[in-house]
Nucleic acid binder design. Structure first.
Lengths: 238, 238
DNA sequence: CGGTACGTTGAGTCATATCAACCATAGTGG
DNA sequence: CCACTATGGTTGATATGACTCAACGTACCG
């Protein structure tokens, strides 16, 4: 099923709608991206780039969800973060001028714009307040990474799973029936939490027994957010 | 024993010697830092700033070693990174304009320069190539954080301890007798690896039995680097 | 209809945390 | 100067969280 007429999104419109980082650019700069960018569509499972790749640009997500992950020794994925509309990925490699230290794979069909490195670099040089925004972004991500390190190092799998569920609620929201909008396989959940698939399954069904969630296949319904918050903290072990 | 005449280091000299990020500044800019900065000396155990603080500047380390850590629920520290001569800390908070997400404490007596936020911000705006260098720095740290997340999530304590020892060798080097130049308490080691103090003690003495290291109090002598490399990877479990 | 990917459950094992006791060292104050 | 206290290091015993392995169910797909 190929679309003959694809609506390539315009960056100026997109930046406003999604609140992407491009909203800090001037009109001419946005126009320049519009001209240079390459619009692409991907389906679930598609790979945008892989660890070790040299990347010639970065991606701005217009719709859909992408997982960014590293691959450990035995091939096990560790999901580092998700990216959704308005967010950019692979900018880290472009800026630090290193090979990609992560891979990116599609979780939900998506439309993305690929923007050549040179444009990013030239904007940083020409538009200082944009550079500052990028710095803020990187520093913010760094702060989140630090928290995550502390969590993985100190919390139990149970606590982390509860926390991740809440984080997913926060990032992707719930539908009218309180179902998590993002749907992941048990394995993917395990690869965020940093545990085995079986452990996620067991803990989720405990959560279900404890009336914290309901499960319908991959769809997870949150029915006691306070309870999850309680678990995700210290309080478990008082 | 108080020094009446303290030699306040000059940034231009220091930047060259230590290869700090200020080497990308113009002569006038460096001069400006020299003028505005506040030189400070700290002793082991001193705290530079604490999680949650609003920080009005960042620190450039001239000598000594500082640990940057987060505090978990039960008060347990998770060491995020170390900073030594030529490196800057707390720039993350300054740039993302958030409260400090970490604390910083002195490991080895140190001399640091405190530089007000405004200077950093103004340089970013006036000197794009400096902004780019800062971005590179932040992105590089982000890459390291991602690796660390994957390691903590996937490797055993044994693997991680070996890895951390190698990382310390890399960052701080060995003296003539192959002793690690940085000396940490067992608890601090545990707080990097993300484990219990007792586990570090037990594993270290295993490493000793296996002729990988020798132990003299806090001083750790590396006698089989290859062996540690082997342990730090997958290879343990073949 | 067989194949493949995902989900679930059970049983056994092991690495690691926890708890407790003890030693060494150094600094403190009466 | 000595008892006192705090801090760090070590070791042993015990408990348990979480992983691994294995079997099996289910659903979807060509």
């Amino acid at each position: 099923m190929r679309q003959h007429e694809i609506n390539v999104p315009l960056c100026d419109k997109c930046a406003l709608e999604t609140g992407s980082i491009f909203k800090h650019l001037t009109a001419e700069e946005v126009e320049m991206i519009n001209f240079e960018k390459d619009f692409r569509q991907y389906k679930r499972g598609d790979v945008l780039y892989q660890e070790g790749n040299r990347i010639s640009g970065f991606y701005c997500i217009h719709s859909g969800i992408i997982k960014v992950f590293k691959t450990g020794f035995d091939g096990k994925e560790q999901i580092i973060r998700f990216a959704k509309e308005g967010e950019i990925i692979a900018y880290r490699s472009v800026l630090s001028n290193e090979a990609a230290c992560t891979s990116a794979k599609v979780i939900e069909d998506c439309q993305v714009c690929f923007i050549p490195s040179e444009i990013l670099i030239s904007f940083i040089k020409s538009n200082p307040s944009y550079a500052l925004e990028l710095l803020k972004l990187a520093c913010h991500e760094l702060g989140e990474a630090n928290s995550f390190i502390t969590d993985i190092a100190q919390k139990t799998v149970r606590e982390r799973l509860a926390e991740i569920l809440l984080l997913l609620v926060n990032d992707f929201g719930l539908d009218e029936q309180n179902y998590l909008k993002i749907s992941l396989t048990r394995e993917e959940l395990a690869n965020i939490v940093g545990t085995a698939t079986e452990s996620v399954i067991r803990l989720l069904s405990e959560f279900k027994t404890d009336k914290l969630v309901e499960l319908n296949g991959r769809k997870i319904k949150i029915i006691n957010k306070k309870g999850l918050e309680k678990i995700s903290n210290v309080l478990t072990r008082i």
